[in-house]
Amino acid sequence: MSEFHISPQEERENPDPYEGTGPVPWPMLALVALVFGFCIVYITRSDIETPSDWGDGRDSSELSGAKESGKVDGAALFASLCVACHQANGQGLPGVFPPLAGSEWVLGKDSTAAAILLHGMTGELIVKGATYNGVMPAFGSQLGDEQIAALLSYVRSQWGNSSSAVSVETVARAREAHKDRTAPFAGEKELPARD
């Protein structure tokens, strides 16, 4: 065994501790039951279904909450939701994303444009003489009528476009008209630009 000597510090100590056999006091048991109960209630009532991609999917206008003025900012929505594909100048990308500037879809019937935004579009589609075949996502579940109206009004007044503003009622009617739809429109053959 190793060398040792007993120092005065070691000598004056109390013996090492051990555990007594005291029972768990009943308020402690009551507390266990209380916290356990609280947690069960908490789980049943908490909002567990929040889609896990939500944190990434919300745009700045949603995060900043309802504005006092009540006016939805179409430009901000466009900047956060559409520029990635249709570009800030509304020209799209040749062969991949169709332009919004001068597009017959944008300038045409407002209910058609609203329907595209509500449900999205896939399949063949001709814009300004060029054919596109891509996927336009649906925004109907993410955006309210008011937001879609503001977006379309914005798009219809930019980059040389000068069509009338789109009303909230138009969007609401389009939503009602296509309410049973679960898939995006299949290109031009399902939703022509003009009828």
């Binding site: 109390n14 090492d16 501790p17 555990e19 007594g20 056999t21 005291g22 029972p23 768990v24 402690m28």
Partner: peptide
């Protein structure tokens, strides 16, 4: 804490059951 507190006052920790919990 479990070592030094009882050590210095010279009393056992009161409840093994609570330690387990």
């Amino acid at each position: 804490v479990y070592y030094f507190l009882p050590k210095i006052i010279g009393r056992p920790v009161q409840s093994y059951n609570l330690s387990l919990l």
